[in-house]
Design a protein around this nucleic acid. Sequence first.
DNA 1: GCAAAAGTGTTCCCGTTACACCCATGT
DNA 2: ACATGGGTGTAACGGGAACACTTTTGC
Lengths: 232, 232
Amino acid sequence: MSSDASEELSTYVVSVDCVIFGYMHNAIMVALLMRAEEPFADCWALPGGPILAGESPEQACLRKLEEDIGLKVEYLEQLYTFGAPGRDPRKRAFSISHFALIEDTERPLIWGQDSRTAQWFHIDKLPSSDWAFDHENIVQKALQRLRGKLSYEPIGLSLLPEEFSLPELKNIYDVILGKELDRRNFYKKIKATGLLLPTQTIPSTRGKPTQLYRFDRKRYAQLKEEGFAFEI
Amino acid sequence: MSSDASEELSTYVVSVDCVIFGYMHNAIMVALLMRAEEPFADCWALPGGPILAGESPEQACLRKLEEDIGLKVEYLEQLYTFGAPGRDPRKRAFSISHFALIEDTERPLIWGQDSRTAQWFHIDKLPSSDWAFDHENIVQKALQRLRGKLSYEPIGLSLLPEEFSLPELKNIYDVILGKELDRRNFYKKIKATGLLLPTQTIPSTRGKPTQLYRFDRKRYAQLKEEGFAFEI
DNA sequence: GCAAAAGTGTTCCCGTTACACCCATGT
DNA sequence: ACATGGGTGTAACGGGAACACTTTTGC
C-alpha cells in the first residue's frame, strides 16, 4: 500500500503547528502539549491542527491558539514547512510551522481533549527526549529565529504587556541572547529610536519608582515603510 | 461541491515552486515560464511541480530544476509556503516556495512541455501583468530575501562560477542592493574575511590583468560552526 | 602615450563599548 | 541611614565611510 518513491503522492495531510514563546518568571518559555493518542502518545508536541477550508495557514494558527489553548497572540509569522517523508509514521504529512509570541502572562495553559496536559517549558530546560514527530527540530528552528530576529525587529516588545519598563525589556534581551547587556547602553539605544512613549511611573518593589513606556506601533510601521531599520 | 469555510479541507494539492536567480549580462535575472494550459494560460509562472512520494520538498525542487529546466543549482533554501484559499481557482493548493541561486551562465533556459516558453527576466523589468496565481508575490518575497541575506551570508558567491574576480563580485552587490559600493572598502572587507583564496590572474578586456579567487567553502563552514558571522 | 580597468593605503568620524556616579524609595 | 533597584553622562576605542593615487595592459 505504501507507494513507490518515484510515484506521485496519494494520501497526505497538511496542518499547522505553532511554537509559542512567552515571557514569565523572568524567563522565556515554550508551550508544549503531551499527546494523549498514538502515534507518540505521552510525547511532547507542539499545538497545531488541520487547516479549514476558508482559512489561510496563519488564520488556522490564530484560531487554534485562541480557541484551544486560550492564548492571545501578539505576533505570528510563518516559520518553515516540514514535509520530509517519514516524519509522520501514518502517512505523508506537511506541517506549516509558525512562530508565535504572546503577551506576558502568568496564566497556566489550558488544553484541548486531544492532549493529556500542557506545560510551559523554560527554553534552556526543554525535554531531552519524548518528543513527538520532528517537533524538537521545529522548536530549535524557532529558537534560532527568535535569537536572530531579536536585534533587528522589535519582537521583544511583543512579549511584554502594553505598558512595560526598561528593566523588564532589557531582561528579555538578556535571557534570549544569553548574556547580560549593559544597562546604560541598552537604554540609550532603545530610547534613541524615539519609539518609546513614557506613560506613567509605578512604585518599584524597592527603591526608585519605575517609568513605564508604550511602544509607538504606528510610528514604527510608518518609519519601517520609509526604510528605517530597528536595531538594538 | 465547494466546501463550507468551516469544514475541513477535502481535496487539495501540495507542490513546490522555485524562484531561480541567476547573474548574467551584469544583471540579476529570474527564470519564468509561460504556461501553456489553463488556468492562467499564457501567463508567467514559476517553475515547480508536485512532490513525489520518496522525496522532501527540497529534493523535489532540485529534481525539477535539474531535470526539467536544465539548471545546476548552487544554493537552495525554503522561502515560504503560500496556501491562502482561492490562490488556485481549481482547488485548494499549497505551494512550498523555494529560493534558488544558480551559477553564472549565459545559457538560455530549456523548458518542459507544459510551458510555451521560458525566459530570464531582469529583476527590475519583471512583467507588470499576466502573472499566474500569486507568483508575483512569491517573486517579490524572494527578492526581499535576496536583498536581506546578501550582506550577512555569502550568497553572492553562489551566483558566480567557482573562480571569480573581485570586480565581478562587487558588481553583484551593486546590482542587488541597487547602489554602487565603494570598491576599496568592499575589497578590504571581503579580503579581511580570509575566505578568498587567490588562484590565477587572467588578462582583462582592457588594462591590468584580473586576479581570480576561489571561495574557501570548507573554512567558511568551519568558522560558521564557531559562530563566525559573515558580513559585508 | 593614453585610456581603461585593477589594485592599494590613509584619514576622519560616528557609533559602540566601557565605565562610575546620583536618585528615590521602602524598610 | 542604608540597602536596593532605577536612572543618567562621558571618555576611549574601533570599524566603516570617504577619498586619491599607482599599476598594468590594449589600442
